[in-house]
Amino acid sequence: MTNTALVIIDVQRGFDDPAFGNRNNPDAEGNIAALVDAWHGPLVLVRHDSTEPGSPLHRGQDGNRFKPELDDAVPDLVFAKKVNSAFHGEADLHAWLTDRGITHIVLAGIQTNMCVETTARVGGNLGYRVEVVVDATFTFDLEDLTADQLARATATNLRGGGFAEIVSTKDVTDRWLRAPR
């Protein structure tokens, strides 16, 4: 499984700001930590550097830092982005993955229907086998849809559109715990 990378997207303290509103999946951070703990392949951490001066995700703000669940992570690549897709950041993720022979990516992080979904779509378009660990993501209510509705819609769009497989934390950790190290 050396051709597989775990990509953790925007797991930052700023998303705890009440201004984001109601969120779903209170187990997301625990599931992200379980993925990182079980993982023994390439690990990528992506951070969103907001260009909005008042944003809790703005570079230099405490909210721009990764959440404590990633404190013990030993990533192979860490970089920032200013847009939704991790494929459009300070590092050329596609080149980095290609140089290492990685053809399969497993995605988790924040927000399900924004940066995780966009990264999955771009990854699928680039020809990667993409898995989204939907129970290791969360999002927020948006307009007239709840966070749970948005997460279900994302899973349906990605699976139904052929962009990604939708998997659980248990699916991934069981597979990695059985894999030779």
Rank of each mutant, 00 (worst) to 15 (best):
H58P: 00
M1A: 02
V134D: 06
A155G: 11
A179I: 00
V78K: 11
G127W: 09
E131N: 04
E131C: 13
I166N: 06
Q61N: 14
G161V: 00
G124S: 13
V78Q: 09
R129I: 10
F79D: 11
V78T: 15
A38I: 04
L43H: 07
T173V: 03
G30N: 05
Y128Q: 08
T103C: 01
G124C: 02
V132W: 14
H94P: 07
G161K: 06
A147I: 05
V44I: 15
S55N: 14
C115G: 11
F20D: 03
H104F: 09
V7E: 02
H88N: 07
F20H: 10
V167N: 04
A91G: 03
G21F: 13
A147S: 08
Q12V: 06
A120P: 14
G127E: 14
V46I: 12
A95P: 01
A164K: 10
P18Q: 01
L45C: 10
R13T: 12
D62N: 10
N157Y: 06
W39L: 13
G109Q: 04
F138Q: 15
D17E: 03
E29M: 07
P26E: 10
T139Q: 13
D72F: 07
G162H: 06
D99G: 09
C115K: 02
Q111A: 13
D76W: 01
N157S: 07
K82Q: 13
W39R: 06
T98F: 04
A95K: 12
Q149W: 15
E165P: 00
S168Q: 02
V46M: 05
R181A: 05
T103A: 14
R47V: 01
H48M: 02
H40Y: 12
P42D: 15
E117A: 10
N157H: 14
T2G: 07
H40W: 06
T2E: 08
N24P: 03
D37C: 03
F15H: 05
G41N: 06
L150N: 04
R129Y: 09
K81V: 06
Q111I: 15
G21H: 02
K170P: 00
T119V: 08
P53S: 00
E29Q: 09
R129P: 09
Y128P: 12
A73W: 04
K170V: 06
A19T: 07
G101C: 00
P42F: 03
V7Q: 00
D62P: 08
Q61T: 14
V106R: 14
F66P: 07
Q111N: 13
R159T: 04
R159V: 07
D49R: 08
M114V: 15
V7L: 10
L97P: 12
I32H: 00
G14C: 05
V7R: 09
D92T: 06
L77K: 13
G41E: 12
W96Y: 13
R178I: 08
V44F: 11
V172F: 04
H104S: 03
A136K: 00
P180I: 14
A28L: 09
Q61M: 13
I166W: 15
V11A: 09
N113A: 11
T51F: 10
H104M: 05
C115I: 12
G161T: 03
Q149F: 15
R13N: 15
D16N: 11
L158R: 00
T154I: 13
A108T: 05
T112A: 04
A95W: 01
G160E: 11
P53N: 04
W96H: 01
D49N: 06
R181Q: 05
E69Q: 07
A120M: 14
C115T: 05
L43R: 02
T2P: 13
R23C: 06
P75S: 04
